[in-house]
Amino acid sequence: MVVYVLAACEIGFWAVLLAGLVARYVFGLRKIGAGLLLSTALVDLVALTAAIIDLRGGATADWTHGLAAMYIGFSVAFGPMMVRWADQRFAHRFAEGPAPTKPPKYGMARARYEWTLWIRAVVACGISAALLFGAIRLIDDHDRTAALDVTLSALLKVVVIWGIVALTYTVFPKRANA
């Protein structure tokens, strides 16, 4: 059940985001558009509620509960960035806004950008881990929450691998062609 709710939440996120952008730039309803863009965060509450209801109802935690925690963590950490990304492109396309900004491609500017993304990933994994620890504490039965340990170790791997990628941009900065 949880995986279907997560799929619906992802579709809902993009639908609410699109509705907010259309209201804002196509119909000129700036306040309604801003309200819809802010309400994309409510989608996370739906995912969290579904996972809690499922676990409180006696379900044994599985990969879908870990995925729910990761979905929420990454949505909180990267959601505002995704909304800005979409807003820039929509404003440029439909409201004669400036061209969207692109991340730097070369040198230490690119390395700083990669470290900024890594910090967001650390925040996302931290939120996800906090939710997983909360679920483990809520259920208080290791047999029912053993699968969440796998997700916790995966979060650590994500942080380490993402950090290695950022480090490579620092140690071996990409240079523009001459």
Rank of each mutant, 00 (worst) to 15 (best):
S128L: 03
L138E: 15
I72C: 03
M70F: 03
W118H: 15
D141E: 13
L55E: 03
G97H: 01
A147D: 05
P103G: 14
K102P: 04
D44S: 12
W85G: 09
V46F: 03
R137A: 15
A59C: 13
A95W: 09
L37D: 04
L67F: 05
I139E: 14
S39M: 06
R110S: 04
R84N: 08
P104Q: 06
P103V: 11
T60V: 11
Q88R: 05
Y113K: 06
I53A: 09
I53H: 11
I52K: 02
F90S: 12
L138W: 07
I136A: 11
L55Q: 04
Y113H: 06
D54E: 13
I136R: 10
S75W: 00
W85V: 05
D149K: 02
I127T: 02
I139G: 03
S128Q: 11
T101W: 05
A47C: 08
W63V: 12
I119V: 08
A77K: 13
A47L: 09
T60F: 01
D141N: 14
L45F: 06
T145K: 10
A68Y: 02
L45Q: 03
R93T: 10
A69V: 03
R110Y: 02
V150D: 03
A61G: 12
T40R: 09
S39K: 02
M82E: 08
V150I: 13
E96F: 02
A91W: 13
S75Y: 00
H142G: 12
R84L: 05
P80Q: 08
I127V: 13
I72L: 01
L48A: 12
A34T: 14
D44P: 00
A130F: 00
T49C: 04
Y71M: 15
A61I: 10
R89T: 14
G57N: 06
A61P: 04
L67T: 07
E114K: 11
R84T: 08
A111H: 15
G126H: 13
E114N: 09
G126N: 10
A68K: 09
M81H: 15
A77F: 04
E114Y: 13
A135K: 01
R89N: 15
R84C: 04
L117E: 01
A124S: 14
A86P: 11
G134P: 12
W63N: 14
T40D: 10
H65S: 01
W115Y: 12
A147E: 12
A69D: 11
H92P: 09
L55T: 09
D140Y: 08
K105S: 12
A77R: 12
L55C: 13
F74K: 02
L117D: 00
L37T: 02
G134C: 04
A129E: 12
D149T: 07
W85Q: 02
A77V: 13
L132S: 10
W63L: 13
R137T: 12
D62K: 11
R144S: 09
P100W: 14
V83Y: 06
R137K: 03
T145Q: 07
T60H: 10
T64S: 15
A146S: 05
P80E: 14
A121D: 13
D141P: 10
V43H: 05
P100M: 01
P98V: 07
H92D: 00
R56K: 05
A135M: 05
F94W: 10
C125H: 00
I53W: 05
